[in-house]
Simulated assay, not measured.
Amino acid sequence: MRALVVQHDHVTEPGLVGARLRERGYDLTEVTVVPADRHHTPDVTFDFPEAAEWDLVVSLGAPWSVYDESAIGSWIGGELALLRKAHHLGIPVLGVCFGAQALTTALGGGVERSARPEIGWTEIDTHDPALVGRGPWMQWHYDRCVPPPGAEEVARNAVCVQAFRLGRSLGVQFHPEITRWMLEGWLAEGGAEECAQQGVDTAELLARSRELEPRARDNARRLVDGFLDRVAGVTH
């Protein structure tokens, strides 16, 4: 089975989500939209693959906003078209953070600024813990999803909708894919300054992440299994 993984920047990899997909028999093809040398000038040109070529599409996080035309207007339309076409073809789509925001936009929902950002590990309220557990999940976002028409809200917290599903597509606002290496990369690429602005202690964040590594791996495995078995309809 072929899975397309849209990696928007050089740091945010499929991580724990990708590891579980491979364990479930998927052959991952990862495409990176913005190379490392354009991280701070992400208005690149990128041609997205055809949706029909894949059995599964995963759209990962990114440090930009879906609606920021000045930063990513050169390529976000192509991604929205990919996600919209995949969904309409019945190809399962998993959107993660920015990927969830792109998914909801592609399907007729919206994205807006959150009342406050979320950075760090949090638990969430879930209507379907067998699909999306309480966590704790890594959060790092300033925007929030307005789910598309007909979508089912699966989880939320006081800040925003944390998970929604529509057909064979699932969007999650948090980061089940997170690894310690990935978090260190975010901090190195401007995340440390963001943490300082928001009053987040980076040493505590890294220590908490090390402590939660086993639980994060288990949570990611359960989420991927729930997505494949309950949303995508793929059996073991």
Rank of each mutant, 00 (worst) to 15 (best):
M1H: 13
R2K: 14
Q7E: 11
H8R: 01
T12G: 11
P14R: 08
P14W: 03
P14K: 01
L16C: 06
V17K: 12
V17P: 02
G18Y: 05
G18W: 08
E23C: 12
E23Y: 06
R24L: 10
T32G: 08
T32L: 13
V33P: 02
V34H: 07
A36F: 04
D37R: 11
H40D: 15
T41S: 15
F46G: 10
D47G: 10
F48P: 13
P49Y: 08
E50K: 14
E50Y: 12
A52Y: 13
A52W: 13
L56Q: 03
S59I: 08
G61D: 08
A62V: 03
W64T: 03
S70Y: 06
A71Q: 12
I72C: 06
W75H: 12
W75L: 09
I76R: 07
G77S: 00
G78P: 06
L83E: 01
K85S: 13
H88R: 14
I91F: 01
V93G: 05
V93M: 10
A100N: 06
A102R: 10
L103G: 10
T104W: 05
T105G: 07
L107T: 02
G110Y: 00
E112L: 11
S114D: 09
G120W: 08
W121C: 04
E123M: 07
I124H: 05
H127T: 13
H127Q: 15
G133A: 09
R134K: 14
P136K: 01
P136V: 00
W137L: 02
W137Y: 11
Q139K: 14
W140T: 00
W140V: 09
H141N: 09
C145W: 11
P148I: 12
R156D: 11
C160H: 10
Q162I: 10
A163S: 03
A163Q: 05
F164H: 04
L166N: 05
L170T: 12
F174V: 00
F174Y: 06
H175V: 04
H175R: 06
T179D: 03
W181L: 14
L183G: 01
L183A: 00
E184F: 05
G185I: 03
W186I: 11
E189S: 14
E189N: 15
G190R: 01
G190N: 05
A192R: 09
C195E: 08
C195Y: 02
Q197T: 12
Q198E: 11
Q198F: 08
V200M: 04
A203W: 11
E204S: 07
E204H: 12
R208V: 07
R210V: 15
A216R: 08
R217F: 12
D218Y: 13
A220F: 02
L223G: 04
L223Y: 03
F227E: 01
G233Q: 10
V234K: 13
